[in-house]
Amino acid sequence: MKIENNKINEIIDILSKFLHGKELPLRLALITFFSKGHLLIEDLPGLGKTTLAIGIAKILGLEFGRIQCTSDLLPTDITGLSIYNKNLEKFEFHPGPIFNNIVLVDEVNRATPKTQSALLEAMGEKQVTLEGETYKLPKPFFVIATQNPVEQFGTFPLPESQMDRFMMKISIGYPSRKAEKEILKGGSRREELYSLEPVMDIDEVLKIQEDINRVYLSDKVIDYIIDIAESTRKNEFFSTGLSIRGTLAIAKTAKTNAYFHGRDFVIPEDIKELAPYTIPHRVLIKEDYENIDKQELIKSVLEKIPVPA
Results as ranks from 00 to 15, higher is better:
residue 107 E to S: 03
residue 178 K to E: 14
residue 80 G to V: 06
residue 33 F to Y: 14
residue 307 V to C: 02
residue 289 Y to P: 07
residue 37 G to Q: 08
residue 133 E to P: 00
residue 67 I to V: 15
residue 176 S to K: 02
residue 135 Y to A: 01
residue 60 L to S: 02
residue 183 I to C: 07
residue 72 D to I: 05
residue 305 I to A: 04
residue 9 N to M: 03
residue 136 K to S: 13
residue 97 P to E: 04
residue 205 V to I: 09
residue 209 Q to C: 03
residue 12 I to S: 10
residue 68 Q to A: 08
residue 86 K to W: 11
residue 79 T to G: 09
residue 96 G to W: 00
residue 292 I to P: 07
residue 193 L to V: 08
residue 219 D to H: 06
residue 302 L to Q: 08
residue 13 D to I: 01
residue 187 G to H: 00
residue 142 F to Q: 08
residue 127 Q to N: 04
residue 24 L to K: 14
residue 6 N to V: 05
residue 96 G to Q: 00
residue 267 I to W: 01
residue 217 L to S: 11
residue 81 L to G: 13
residue 228 I to R: 12
residue 133 E to H: 07
residue 73 L to E: 12
residue 23 E to L: 04
residue 267 I to A: 06
residue 235 N to S: 11
residue 88 L to F: 11
residue 256 T to F: 01
residue 15 L to C: 06
residue 56 I to R: 00
residue 9 N to D: 12
residue 157 P to H: 04
residue 57 A to M: 06
residue 20 H to Y: 14
residue 295 Q to P: 00
residue 205 V to P: 03
residue 61 G to F: 03
residue 138 P to R: 00
residue 68 Q to V: 09
residue 303 E to Q: 14
residue 50 T to A: 04
residue 24 L to C: 02
residue 232 T to C: 08
residue 20 H to T: 14
residue 110 R to G: 14
residue 286 K to P: 12
residue 281 H to P: 03
residue 147 Q to L: 01
residue 309 A to Y: 10
residue 17 K to G: 15
residue 84 Y to C: 03
residue 105 V to Q: 04
residue 188 S to A: 01
residue 36 K to L: 04
residue 120 L to Y: 15
residue 38 H to A: 05
residue 267 I to D: 12
residue 70 T to Y: 14
residue 201 D to W: 07
residue 121 E to S: 02
residue 51 T to A: 12
residue 160 E to G: 04
residue 297 L to C: 07
residue 84 Y to R: 05
residue 47 L to N: 10
residue 75 P to Y: 15
residue 252 K to S: 11
residue 253 T to P: 02
residue 299 K to Q: 14
residue 156 F to Q: 05
residue 70 T to N: 12
residue 2 K to P: 10
residue 18 F to P: 09
residue 249 A to G: 13
residue 159 P to N: 08
residue 288 D to Q: 15
residue 147 Q to C: 05
residue 156 F to E: 05
residue 49 K to A: 09
residue 8 I to H: 11
residue 268 P to V: 12
residue 307 V to W: 13
residue 166 F to P: 12
residue 306 P to Y: 13
residue 15 L to E: 08
residue 131 E to G: 05
residue 133 E to M: 10
residue 41 I to P: 02
residue 209 Q to D: 13
residue 300 S to G: 12
residue 198 P to Y: 09
residue 255 K to Y: 04
residue 57 A to H: 02
residue 226 I to C: 09
residue 91 F to C: 03
residue 216 Y to G: 00
residue 252 K to R: 15
residue 307 V to I: 15
residue 282 R to I: 00
residue 141 F to T: 06
residue 298 I to D: 00
residue 99 F to D: 03
residue 285 I to N: 13
residue 84 Y to A: 02
residue 41 I to S: 02
residue 176 S to A: 06
residue 60 L to Q: 02
residue 100 N to K: 11
residue 307 V to A: 06
residue 110 R to W: 06
residue 244 I to L: 14
residue 253 T to S: 03
residue 294 K to I: 15
residue 5 N to F: 13
residue 83 I to H: 12
residue 155 T to I: 05
residue 41 I to Y: 01
residue 152 Q to H: 14
residue 238 F to M: 11
residue 133 E to L: 12
residue 298 I to C: 08
residue 235 N to R: 05
residue 32 T to E: 10
residue 252 K to A: 08
residue 125 E to R: 04
